[in-house]
Amino acid sequence: MTFADRLKTLIGEESVSGFARRVDISEALIRKYLKGSEPSFTKANQIAIRANCSLEWLATGCGYLYRHAEVVDQDALIAAYTAVTGQTPNDEKVTELVKMVSGYQFLRKHKKTDGYLDIEAMTTFLSIAKMERK
């Protein structure tokens, strides 16, 4: 499978223009990728993050199509928070919750060789993730 094939799979039945809006990349550029052009790492990562897709799968075809503990589905998080608390979280609270869940997911998958949680690595991960969202 080529990158274009994997992108077609990711888009599925969604319109190209709708997908382009969702991943915040121009429709013309998405169509260029669908015709065989290869994206830069930055653009591929942007597509993966916004489409909740594994960057490894999108780039190589290996691994899993959807991320397991790499991103937080904000719509699901907001719905869960609202169901539990009876309140809709404001933007500041959503950011706080996303960081908490991202940190939790990171710690679940990354432990030191002695088995202890790698808090320092999680802190680094969260600071890098914050920089990439800007």
Score class of each variant (00 low, 15 high):
86 G>Q: 05
61 G>Q: 06
72 V>Q: 10
32 K>P: 00
13 E>S: 12
86 G>W: 03
42 T>M: 04
47 I>E: 00
50 R>I: 08
97 L>A: 14
116 Y>V: 03
76 A>T: 12
56 E>G: 04
131 M>A: 11
116 Y>S: 06
25 I>G: 01
97 L>H: 10
22 R>K: 14
130 K>A: 13
68 H>G: 09
6 R>Q: 07
131 M>Y: 04
50 R>F: 14
24 D>G: 00
35 K>T: 11
107 L>S: 14
52 N>Q: 12
102 S>D: 15
122 M>A: 14
93 K>P: 04
98 V>K: 11
8 K>Y: 03
92 E>T: 12
3 F>G: 08
13 E>W: 01
87 Q>K: 14
100 M>G: 12
83 A>H: 03
120 E>V: 11
115 G>C: 05
84 V>D: 14
120 E>W: 01
76 A>L: 12
84 V>L: 09
116 Y>A: 06
45 N>P: 00
104 Y>F: 15
91 D>V: 05
65 L>D: 03
125 F>N: 13
31 R>K: 15
108 R>P: 04
28 A>R: 04
59 A>K: 10
68 H>V: 10
92 E>N: 07
18 G>V: 04
7 L>D: 07
7 L>V: 07
116 Y>T: 11
96 E>R: 08
49 I>M: 03
29 L>V: 01
9 T>S: 12
18 G>S: 14
53 C>H: 05
79 A>T: 14
63 G>H: 05
6 R>N: 09
88 T>Y: 14
30 I>T: 07
111 K>L: 13
22 R>S: 13
22 R>D: 10
66 Y>E: 10
74 Q>H: 10
62 C>G: 07
78 I>V: 15
127 S>A: 12
27 E>R: 15
31 R>L: 01
24 D>E: 09
90 N>Y: 02
119 I>Y: 07
83 A>S: 06
81 Y>A: 15
95 T>K: 15
81 Y>T: 14
124 T>C: 11
32 K>E: 03
77 L>E: 12
11 I>G: 08
11 I>R: 06
20 A>I: 08
31 R>E: 01
125 F>V: 11
92 E>G: 13
86 G>R: 01
26 S>I: 02
7 L>W: 02
22 R>V: 01
27 E>K: 13
51 A>Q: 06
128 I>V: 15
49 I>W: 03
122 M>F: 01
95 T>S: 14
92 E>F: 02
54 S>W: 06
33 Y>A: 04
95 T>G: 05
14 E>W: 05
43 K>Y: 03
66 Y>P: 04
64 Y>L: 11
48 A>W: 02
117 L>D: 11
100 M>I: 09
25 I>N: 02
26 S>D: 04
56 E>L: 11
120 E>H: 11
53 C>G: 08
93 K>E: 15
73 D>E: 13
51 A>L: 10
21 R>Y: 03
38 E>D: 08
18 G>P: 01
12 G>R: 09
